[in-house]
Simulated scan of single mutants.
Amino acid sequence: MSLAQLTVHRHDRRNRALITLGGEIDLESAPLVRASLERCLQDGIRTIYVDLTQVTFCDCSGLNEFLRAAQRITVVGGTLRLHHPPTTLARILDLADCGFLLLGLPFGHLPPPLGDTPAAPLPAPRHRSVPLTSVLLGDVR
């Protein structure tokens, strides 16, 4: 049995953190995700951005950790936002109808389902897209 490879990088700025994950998030690596998010809370971080650009796979055990952390962070007045979820996680979020909790989208405005038929395009967002590092560093006006 081989251990799943997951890398975790954290960059803090005041009470915000950007966590960049890379590799696979599954039953074996989900405890590392939990520990990383818990450590942020212990360190007084109240806004956590999780960049999943480099994640190749995420199953329901990863989703479970993100939901658990989002609940704990919300209780203390903070937020957890996932950015660039891999296809597997996007599909799970769609099926569970819980993307609004983690993606920062208004309820009922989730991305189109990942089915075989193309969905109608979503209207362009009213805000400009900014790199996560700009959000973390407070450069967004």
Rank of each mutant, 00 (worst) to 15 (best):
T7S: 14
A120F: 02
E28Q: 09
G23Y: 15
L80D: 05
L95M: 06
P85W: 03
L110Y: 14
R91N: 07
D26V: 14
P123A: 11
P131W: 12
F107K: 15
P106F: 14
G99W: 00
P113D: 08
S129K: 01
E24L: 00
A124R: 01
F100H: 11
G138R: 09
E65T: 04
Q42M: 07
G138W: 04
L110T: 13
V76G: 06
D116E: 15
E38H: 02
C98D: 06
S36M: 03
L93I: 04
P118C: 11
C40I: 11
L82D: 07
D43P: 03
A4T: 10
L136G: 02
H84N: 11
Q42C: 04
L101N: 07
T56W: 01
L41V: 14
P123G: 08
R14N: 14
G62K: 00
G99I: 00
D97I: 10
P121Q: 05
R128C: 01
T74W: 14
L6G: 11
G104A: 12
F57Y: 15
L102Q: 00
Q5E: 15
H9G: 03
P111I: 02
N64P: 00
L101D: 07
S134V: 02
A35N: 05
R34H: 15
I25G: 06
D59A: 04
L114S: 08
M1C: 11
L63Y: 03
T53L: 12
C60Y: 10
T88V: 13
T47A: 11
Q42H: 11
S2K: 14
P111E: 07
C60P: 01
L6V: 10
Q54T: 08
P106M: 09
G77Y: 09
A119D: 06
L82M: 08
